[in-house]
Design a protein around this nucleic acid. Structure first.
Lengths: 224, 224
DNA sequence: CTATATTTGCGTAAATTGTACGCATAATAT
DNA sequence: ATATTATGCGTACAATTTACGCAAATATAG
């Protein structure tokens, strides 16, 4: 039996900065869809697993180092790629603000961050993949502590709140949100404070992953 | 670039009968893992999509017709198959009791239902796939109305409750469970009653999928 | 035929969780 | 000094969840 099905990976990488959620795209250098924007990704090599393929492609095409990576869905429709039968395993990833800057490095292709509400036309079925990734992210921040993965290690509470209101596209009562989040026992309040512009300086918090795993093992679930 | 990655699909099919959750396995006819039990599945053909591949393999190997099918995860570790690099897209499925009987039909291989607590040793990484599927099913019945897919179209409330207590492995207060379930407005109480053994005869209920989709569109979510 | 066991169906009180919002505090801007 | 802004803390009320009592409708045992 001759095997003519090809396997690729694609990554939907989200970043957060100053109240905006962005996604990382690359401009295609070759046909098909030459010069169109697309999700970073490419063919899986025989001697690497799927996560390694994602990390290699991201490194080659964008130079971005991912902070959180999770498999999203596998797209296998017959006509999704004009080159023939190509099945793609999609992942979604999150990066911290410091990884946000794109160095126009080495042989990095043209990569850019786009606000999730103003994406350009995308190659292949990548629009559909992006849409599913965004829905997954929106759902997931309510039942897994992954919102922190978009922020620096130390962050003021208002930043976390902003990530939630931006992603969920609805207002959240600041005081109730903090009470709920603190009751989950996975945030440590640090001694440090930060003062940005005017207003009372904010305490910095950090996510205690060890405590989270501990609580998860005990069957206590994160839920906002 | 020569492509040597092969693509398969595997299905974790669950069935329910008389308080027991079972999973469908087939005995392998050829090497590798000859005569070992495995999840039904096989290579994806070039002219079929992934769901079609699942349905074809299930039909060929077991004759079982699936009632609910959902993609689970794609397994791509380097050494998961001794034949070489084989990536497998796993699905999980549910069947209704009437599809439970296995006809030793045509060229159906040896297929059998196994209680989920007493599975035999499985080929490849199928134990890992099964484990993930069970966890997904357990989680999913609490936030999507898929428990009904394991029951006949008409069912007494006690059957639904049994599906939940069996899968979640914990007692649920019968009265509160019914109140909660009815408050979701997706079950219709029929005029019919059923009497099994002694005790008061039970009303039959049916899942109103149309109403569910309606409510979902309005943003109302199913949650037990 | 009567008493008992069993399963379903309905309701209510208490405990827990969620929501709305008032007000003090600590900084900057005028 | 005073206004403005963002953070931090608390409290009353509403909604939901949980625990559990009891009646109704059947089968079974004596």
């Amino acid at each position: 039996m001759e095997n003519t099905i090809q396997l690729t990976v694609d990554a939907v990488v989200f970043g957060y900065e100053a109240g905006n959620i962005s996604v990382l795209l690359v401009k295609r250098k070759y046909e098909p869809y030459q010069n169109a924007w697309a999700l970073p990704g490419g063919f899986v090599l025989e001697n690497e697993n799927l996560e390694q393929a994602i990390e290699r492609e991201l490194s080659e095409e964008t130079g971005v180092k991912i902070n959180y990576l999770e498999q999203l869905y596998t797209f296998g429709d017959l006509a999704r790629d004009p080159r023939g039968r190509v099945v793609s395993v999609a992942y979604f990833g999150l990066v911290k603000p410091n990884a946000f800057q794109l160095q126009a490095s080495t042989d990095a292709e043209l990569a850019e961050w786009f606000h999730i509400d103003t994406l350009p036309k995308l190659a292949f079925d990548h629009k559909k993949i992006f849409k599913m990734a965004l829905e997954r992210l929106q759902a997931k921040i309510t039942y897994e502590p992954i919102g922190f993965e978009l922020l620096d290690k130390k962050f003021p509470f208002s930043d976390l709140e902003k990530v939630y209101t931006t992603l969920l596209r609805r207002e959240i009562d600041r005081r109730n949100f903090k009470k709920k989040m603190m009751s989950l026992k996975v945030l440590d309040e640090l001694d440090e404070k930060i003062s940005i512009g005017r207003g009372r300086p904010a305490s910095l918090f950090s996510f205690n992953q060890q405590r989270y795993f501990q609580l998860k093992k005990e069957g206590i679930i994160f839920e906002i």
